[in-house]
Amino acid sequence: MVVAQVSSPEVADAGARFLAEVGAKTAGVSRLEMCIQCGSCGGSCPSADAMDHTPRGLFALIRAGERDEVLHSNTPWMCLSCYHCVVRCPQDILITDVMYALKVIAEEEHTYPNNVAPDFAGVFVGQARRFGRSWEMGLTARHYLRHYILRLPRMTPMALGLFRHGRIGLLPHQIHQKKQLQAILRRADELERAR
């Protein structure tokens, strides 16, 4: 149906270009061009209610070359990585990885609809790169102070509970070979930029 609307060569070109771009950004073999618009993905999605486009709708927009609309959509950010759609997709499209690819592009171009999830990922990754391990305490403290001040009153007893049960430490665990890890990641950054 949507394919039929793509009539002008310019639109078709833009669609093909964006489709290729997303495919190239996807870690596995995306097979996104094989989408038959059946809607199994959206129908399987536990968070579809919160999305502005269902995955199927988003893939139609990609083919139509609606790059801006897609990259400003909250759909990839509402993806839970539950892989329900992936195992149900009759065309074996790596939908979750396509969502990751769209998030990566939106991160690069700062087109995400709000900054809560990108911030959370940024802080998580920053700490993991620095220490070699994730740091639950530092991550949640910073995240709640920045984005969820109003949730803090309820979260404080929870954090105290975590301490009481010995489930959270104040200081981060760290790996020994931090320099090695950071050298690997710096090189990986260069390679990612050069793509």
Partner: peptide, 12 residues
Amino acid sequence: GATEYVSLSTTP
């Protein structure tokens, strides 16, 4: 990296 790093940058 959990599900966070793959949402930020692929190769790293």
